[in-house]
Amino acid sequence: MIVNWFRYSSPVSFYPLAGRLSRAFGVLAAGFTIAGLYIGLVVAPTDATQGDAYRIIFLHVPTAWMAMLIYLAMAFWSALALGFNTRLSAMMAQALAPTGALMAALALWSGAFWGRPTWGTYWAWDARMTSTLILLFLYLGVIALRSAIDDPRRADRACALLSLVGAVNVPIIYFSVQWWNTLHQGSSISFTSAPKMAMTMVEGLLVMTAGVWSYCIAVTLARVRSIIVERERGSGWVASLIARQGAR
């Protein structure tokens, strides 16, 4: 079966699809998160060294992964927007930034509250932490840049450039624990080796990751719908959309 994906590259046809997907992923997010929290906070055993403080991992690791992944997604849509000058790609990049910033902030916040009982400090100027803090500031920079430029198409181009330049930071974050001697420990789960944690812990981590993924997709799609209405409000189809359903 051949799906005409280009059909969905126009805001008109993407708007209702995004609504259906957003609701579906919202339901998935709720399910996965509840299950993941149950596994992580109740079922998973205490860690031998860190006690129950390690349970922060079930929030920290998924949000940290997501903060990096969303930045890559934002850079990807930005590249498409620059290359093909497509409206919807720029809107997707715009919709991803706030959620990416939130994920970076949560990763830093939960990391601080994990670092205090284990390392002995809320914050250290460690390579991993410093580069993640820079990621947060890149997100905030993109959001501020967008708000500073009135013309949406010019804002698209400026934000796309900043997003693409900032993308070099993502591999720095990911590989910082291998490139330098950092206080931050290495990865417990990677593509190249067996997980370095008990199986229940891995399960909790993966289920929570699925929950955070679904949440970010649901929220981003909901936000892109608002962005479409904001930016296409002069068009006829938005007029008929309003006439049909109103603001609810």
């Binding site: 860690d47 290495g186 008990a198």
Partner: peptide, 16 residues
């Protein structure tokens, strides 16, 4: 300042 550095291995006390 002295900070504890832990590794990336997590396991229940019995396993340890």
């Amino acid at each position: 300042e002295v900070l504890a550095k832990h590794d990336e291995n997590y396991m229940p006390p019995e396993a340890k």
